[in-house]
Write a protein that binds this DNA or RNA. Structure first.
Lengths: 123, 123
DNA sequence: CCCGAAGTACGACCGCTGTCAAACTTTGAT
DNA sequence: ATCAAAGTTTGACAGCGGTCGTACTTCGGG
């Protein structure tokens, strides 16, 4: 079980080079915003990175794959393989430098609207 | 030429009651973001409110009407009639209370990406 | 009174994207 | 070697939303 398999590592653009349009396109979808929010909660709690299957999502696996790619290409998350599963980490600092205040504003609004941590899971 | 005609005044929801989803739906469109940015620039310069036809937009009148309505229903702008024209004002304070930091983050990113004030107009 | 200017309302069209199922790949365990 | 688990890829489909043109309304001026 190697960590961070070099061979199958996906592309990770520099957030500073991502157009605002692409970032907003990524954040406008409720499923993707739910993913980001769950990652933010885990990050705040200093919990381990979450694998794709570890999220609370009401969509099929192929749709989830699609959402993760959109988030990754928008510079919002980093993905790395651990065995057969893929871990996801929020690129908080890098993204925050490129788009100051944006992620916080969105996640804060999301939390204000839905204080429950993750419907269906404890936490 | 009456100001703020009471009879034909459109609905203006309280920004605090608008779902985050609706706000992001409003801000994700580049034409609407351009409108917001121009209003923000005018507001910063303490310039007068801009009428619908006074914006630099590359769309038809009916499309523009559509965009203004989306922005108004998202709690982002206020519209009032002056004669036959409709003035538009950014609801900065009220919206900022409901969604702290969001408008600033988006407009700042927009300005960073396109420093020109308004392509095609002086300013 | 009549016309033009400024927007709005309505219908239609079209492209984009979120969605899924199915087939495939890769990894780890038995 | 085999099998299951975790994701990816591809192709297809459906619905939403941005766009426009046209007709309509309202206001102000000559």
């Amino acid at each position: 079980m190697r960590e961070s398999d070099d061979g199958r590592a996906p592309e990770h653009p520099d957030p500073a080079g991502v157009p605002l349009q692409q970032v907003l396109d990524a954040l406008v979808d409720p499923a993707r915003r739910s993913i980001v929010r769950q990652m933010c909660d885990a990050d705040d709690a200093r919990a381990a990175d979450i694998s794709c299957g570890g999220f609370d999502l009401a969509v099929s696996k192929s749709t989830a794959t699609h959402h993760f790619r959109v988030l990754r290409e928008a510079g919002l998350i980093r993905q790395y393989y651990v065995g057969t599963s893929r871990k996801n980490a929020l690129r908080r600092a890098e993204f925050g430098t490129a788009f100051p205040g944006l992620l916080d504003a969105v996640v804060d609004a999301e939390r204000r609207a839905r204080p429950e941590c993750t419907p269906g899971r404890a936490g």
